[in-house]
Amino acid sequence: MDSVPNPWFSWDYIANNWGEVSEQLVIHTTLTVQAVLIAVLIAAPLGVLARRVKWLTGPIVGTAGVLYTIPSFALFALLAPFTGIGRTTVLIGLVAYALLVLVRNLVVGLQGVDRDVVDAARGQGLTERQLLWRVELPLALPSIVAGLRIATVTTVALVTVGVVVGYGGLGQLMFRGLGSNYRAQIMTATLLCLALALIFDLLLMLIGRALTPWTQRRPT
């Protein structure tokens, strides 16, 4: 029995602390967007390279797999001594994890392109560059978008682990809420995290649909 009321949710908390909550929400959102964008910029050439240069596929995907096995908590801590406490450390860690998911899905997507289609495109006289941009990448889009969605949703959740280096976005609120034993703060941060992940996921799903109209026209 609590002597002081400790509700699981409180509009008053949100109203009175909106400054703090929105500040962390903005940090959380911008960190996610920034991390995924940087990861895309690195993953795209890496994925294409892994596909083009056959003997590189194994090492690139393998290294990605090994890195992915390293716990985020450990990775942030591993970086902290060198990149300091704060945004940069969290950002590097987030980029690393998003990168792995993106590269893997890009490689799988490119590998899934029908050999006959590629041969037909070559036979029609497409150059390697045209082949990549006009045939392979569009056909790999469903897999790429799927990877992007997984990477983004995972990143939203991972930002909270940044708490270990004092920069966890909404995770900071969860951690502080636990420290002061205030449930409404933890719950608010949790719900905002879930909402953020859901919104990003929906947005990417819609973008994916808009980019691949042919997947909708499939006969039932």
Partner: peptide
């Protein structure tokens, strides 16, 4: 996947 581990941990710890 969308649920941060830290969220569940702190929620449980505060319960």
């Amino acid at each position: 996947r969308a649920m941060p581990t830290l969220a569940l941990l702190t929620l449980f710890a505060a319960s």
